[in-house]
Design a protein around this nucleic acid. Structure first.
Lengths: 202, 202
DNA sequence: CGTTCTTTTGACCAGTTGGTCAAACCAGAA
DNA sequence: TTCTGGTTTGACCAACTGGTCAAAAGAACG
């Protein structure tokens, strides 16, 4: 029977997770150190290990929380809605996540770059199942002539690529743009792009 | 005056760079260890340090070689060619690079994810200059009605995102596709996509 | 106030890390 | 064959790594 967490526990656990997100999303699991995370969280290393039993545990907690929310936008894609509206809304939701949760996006990117050792099974089961199911919906729309004929899986990959790029490659994007905020323009750009991509030929 | 490299030097330096590319592209600079690299290169650690003076030196050599070839496809975009052909050829060249040099793509991704500490200045100067110049060309095409009106910078970002995704997120893409090779389908998908994206409205 | 439970810390540990060095080894030219 | 310069290695080092522990310091509550 686990006790209810105290005020201090809540604060410190949150601080550790936020600090861990900062560090892990930048350096990956291997490149991050407990000293860095403890420092960023404003705690001593032994104190940090009082709240999480190991480096692994912090990372696992973050990945778990991430996967939970990461797939929600795709789950929300509704087969009974208007096809083009649905797909474009999904893309805009994902772009908003890149804007509002760039660290989560980079944590995920880092995990995949390292070969996804900790989540490969989930990708092959849960993620694949979800994507296959939504691809089915998109295929039906295409077959019915409601959107242009397009490979559903690669359409989903394209949405991921186009939106996550603005979080994962943020420093490059801003360097090229001379420091300007890319997101407003990115939103209208992707809007135009998906409109043209999906519109049925006259 | 530097001597010409011997046969052994050439072989070992190449082995080290290849091993370094393997390891750095997976784990990033901080996450990679000299022992890993030496092991992958089939050399002892002191022997490795006989050819490169430090971990930094190996990484720098790789980044330098990378940047040299990484921007060539964009440089080749020709303002005097046929607009749609030129842009689509650029996208296909970049996709081919994701297929043929995925480690280089991941090395670059890792560097950017970590905040690009070693190449930020180059991004802000050389890369920005090159992109601005090519964006100029694309803008002229759009103004002349030769391609659809589209934000040139974000068009370039889109090409980067859509193509590099297949290298950087390879394990995710393959997991979702059940292990199938994504590249043939990706090529035709991107072909259709850019065709629709760039075609001028009738 | 004192007691009990939670929280924090300094000292410490074994294994790993990037890097050094002198000595040994080896290939090839004379 | 010997000499020479390039090559390889084992032993070593200081700094850092993830993690432990007992003891000290705070909260919480009657």
């Amino acid at each position: 029977m686990t006790k209810a967490p105290t005020r201090i526990q809540k604060r410190n656990r949150a601080a550790i997770l936020s600090a861990g997100l900062d560090i892990f999303s930048q350096y990956g699991f291997r490149g991050a150190t407990l000293d860095q995370i403890a420092d960023a969280a404003g705690l001593s290393k032994p104190n940090l290990l009082y709240y999480f039993p190991s480096k692994e545990a912090i990372h696992s907690a973050l990945l778990e929380r991430l996967l939970e929310t990461w797939l929600d936008p795709l789950k929300a894609l509704d087969g009974s809605g208007d096809p083009i509206t649905e797909i474009m809304a999904y893309a805009q939701r994902k772009l908003a996540m890149s804007r509002d949760f760039p660290r989560e996006s980079r944590l995920f990117a880092n995990e995949i770059l390292q070969g996804a050792p900790r989540i490969e099974e989930i990708l092959k089961s849960d993620l694949k199942r979800l994507v296959d199911q939504k691809a089915e919906i998109i295929k039906a729309w295409a077959d019915d002539g409601k959107i242009a004929a397009i490979d559903p899986h690669h359409l989903i990959f394209s949405i991921w690529a186009l939106t996550q790029h603005y979080a994962d490659f943020d420093v490059q994007v801003r360097a090229v743009l001379g420091g300007r905020d890319p997101f407003p323009d990115a939103a209208t750009h992707l809007d135009h792009l998906f409109q043209r991509m999906l519109k049925v030929e006259p």
